[in-house]
Design a binder for these strands. Structure first.
Length: 402
DNA sequence: CGAGATTCATGTGAAGTATACCTTTAGGCTTAA
DNA sequence: AAGCCTAAAGGTATACTTCACATGAATCTCGTA
């Protein structure tokens, strides 16, 4: 421990970064130009353009799987419209809300409250009658005196949880407003979910529809190439790295977001190891890390009861060696476990729901099956690699006992 | 032997309860004139 | 007297519980060949 050379961070600084501009690869980044989405962009632009002439644009419904550029394209257009409106002094407000974020906009109340907050209204997280929130919201809209466009991302999640009345109300608000007009832009990952909608809602929401098809491997490569050029310094990309990245992502319905993340993490990995070139191996490692991080992060943020339930499932899997884990078994271990750590046990009814939710999150795989004479149950499986499973177990133990 | 009844272990829907938080309101206290 | 604070009253959303009924295929039952 003598001089600055021995400072551990000294080495870090000396090491030359592979990145030129890392944020280009991060998820919120909006590039100047969007590849392979010209058709969709002009389509949406044409639909929304009337807003700039103070006319009401039609509502739009946008479909497409994750990472097909929906959010990106819409935000890109929103930016452009905002600047234009600002320059020409047109009264136009565009509000973006992601309905998937828990505790922010995943129920009717929260969504409306969140939207109202965008107008600078103070809304408490709970306590107000929903009508009241609607009133505040309505008033905020009226005060705006102009065209307002709502972009509701991942709207399918919201509707699945809270029903389709919200959308109905939102579309109807428009006819009651005097000074302002609103347009809804719904973005959905789920292509078939609109079939379950109330027909009234469906017709009012999808006055126009735009579909974002998945990128194919070639398109992904182009996107990656363009971004990589801005993000990395010259010559740090190993042979075939981009291709591999693209191929990985194309395998999963052409998810560009994933491809970019893969590339970024691979870059970080290579950098941390002190390599000055990114290799195919880094991509493989990145793939593992991303998946692991996603799951671990998800699990860490779960409520205690969810964690306890998951823990019981893992215990059950290791103990019984049964090919099938049943709800009843899980519940038994769960109860015991609750006693051990002093957690008030929930009913089986609730645990059943929790298991279903864990399934939705993709942490476990639970299928309802009937076993004839032996009743009916969920057949629960952990779908994660063992390496992650152990880590999860550790995290849960830390969280639950600590 | 096969059609229909039975059965099990849990799924699932509806309605009720507990909790946490919100606003409003009224009474009591403080303060300034 | 006006202003401010506090506690109580009245209300809501959400997570959870309670109750009751629904499921669906392996197994049982029993009539029939």
């Amino acid at each position: 421990m003598k001089k600055e050379e021995n400072n551990i961070f000294e080495q870090f600084l000396k090491k030359e970064s592979l990145f030129k501009d890392k944020k280009v690869l991060q998820s919120g980044y909006i590039p100047d130009e969007i590849n392979h989405r010209d058709e969709q962009i002009t389509q949406i632009a044409n639909i929304l353009a009337p807003a700039l002439r103070m006319e009401k644009p039609s509502n739009v419904f946008i479909y497409g799987k994750t990472g097909t550029g929906k959010t990106l394209s819409v935000r890109y257009l929103a930016e452009q419209m905002k600047t234009l409106a600002y320059n020409k002094k047109i009264s136009l407000k565009i509000i973006y809300a992601n309905c998937k974020l828990k505790k922010i906009a995943d129920t009717e109340y929260r969504l409306i409250a969140q939207l109202a907050r965008e107008f600078g209204k103070e809304i408490p997280p709970t306590g107000l009658p929903t009508d009241e929130v609607y009133n505040i919201f309505f008033q905020a809209l009226e005060e705006e005196k102009g065209t307002i466009i709502f972009i509701l991302d991942e709207i399918d999640q919201l509707i699945k949880k809270a029903g389709d009345e919200i959308i109905y109300n939102l579309t109807r608000i428009n006819s009651e407003l005097k000074e302002s007009q609103t347009t809804l832009v719904g973005i959905s990952n789920d292509l078939i979910f609109s079939n379950n909608l109330d027909p009234r809602v469906k017709s009012s929401l999808s006055e126009e529809e735009v579909i974002f098809p998945p990128y194919n491997a070639v398109q992904l490569q182009n996107i990656l190439k363009r971004r990589a050029k801005e993000a990395f310094k010259d010559g740090v990309l190993g042979e075939g790295v981009l291709q591999k990245c693209a191929a990985y992502a194309a395998r999963e319905h052409g998810d560009a977001r994933r491809a970019l993340e893969l590339l970024r993490v691979a870059g970080e990995l290579a950098e941390r190891k002190g390599h000055n070139i990114i290799t195919m191996n880094n991509i493989d490692e990145a793939e593992n890390i991303i998946e692991k991080d996603r799951v671990l992060e998800l699990i860490k943020n779960q409520p205690k009861q969810f964690q306890a339930t998951l823990y019981s499932i893992i215990i059950n899997k290791n103990n019984s060696k049964n090919k099938f884990i049943q709800t009843g078994d899980v519940y038994d271990t769960y109860r015991q476990f609750c006693g051990k750590i002093g957690l008030r046990p929930l009913t089986q009814r609730r645990i059943s729901d929790i298991i279903a939710e864990l399934d939705m999150m993709g942490i476990i795989n639970a299928k309802v099956i009937s076993k004839g004479r032996f009743g009916r149950t969920r057949d629960i499986n952990l779908i994660l690699p063992v390496s992650i499973e152990l880590k999860i177990k550790k995290i849960l133990e830390d969280d639950l006992f600590g």
